[in-house]
Amino acid sequence: MFDLNLLGKPGIQPQVVQTTYSFIEQKPKPAAGFHREEYTEEPLEDGRPGRSRAPFLILLLILLVMAGVYFFNTGRRQAALPAARESLSVQDEVSQVISVLGNLSDKVYLQRFLITPEIILANLRSDDQIELNMLSVELEDLLKVQCRISGSKEFGVLLSISIPIEYESQELNDTTPVKKIMEKQGLSDIRESGLTISATLRNEDIFPLLQNMLEAGFIYYKKCWIECRVDQDCSFQLLYDASSTK
């Protein structure tokens, strides 16, 4: 078993690592006067053992040559889909996702949320990997969701969620009712062009708005893309595009 030491040279580590790194006076030096003894096959004891050995403090310094390969990688955690899962309607699935994501802890930030006729995608960021792990477990319990956790910029951990959905619907020819919902929600900077509406909204408005749009049925139209994306100034840009050919 390796001795995990994050002071040494990054990269691939050997199976057995017994390495001491010394950081003093800006240059590494061996830990003088210490060595490591061979372990004896004594029975395991819970209590305090006898103390008759010679002075033991000897730590054998082995500076292992570590092949330095500065590679970063992100491992994948592909969610295993439960074999039998209760079948949910598309509306239920979308509703559940909105509900879960609408109640994120303070440590988790929504970065992007996209609903298309084929898939729901969400990117969430957090400094707390455990939070994201728990969130992915929760989502996996609910839905046929694929979660992927990876490291990303600025120390954050990214949870990417994708949920395939299928439904048949007609095209939306008039986006006026959608715009009215946005106005009612208090969104600012609403811009309309053909069958595309964009607006600026606050983080806390995203999921109530999506829930309202869901209840009004404006999510289920052919060629309809709804995307929320965090902007440079940390506000969210909403794009409702009922004419997408993507």
Binding site: F2, L4, L6, G8, P10, G11, I12, Q13, P14, Q15, V17, Y70, F71, F72, N73, T74, S150, G151, S152, K153, E154, F155
Partner: peptide, 17 residues
């Protein structure tokens, strides 16, 4: 496949078998 150009600037990565 998945590199983030900033990642290696701010993180040290260790790979243990």
């Amino acid at each position: 496949q998945s590199q983030d150009e900033k990642f290696q600037e701010v993180m040290d990565s260790y790979h243990f078998p």
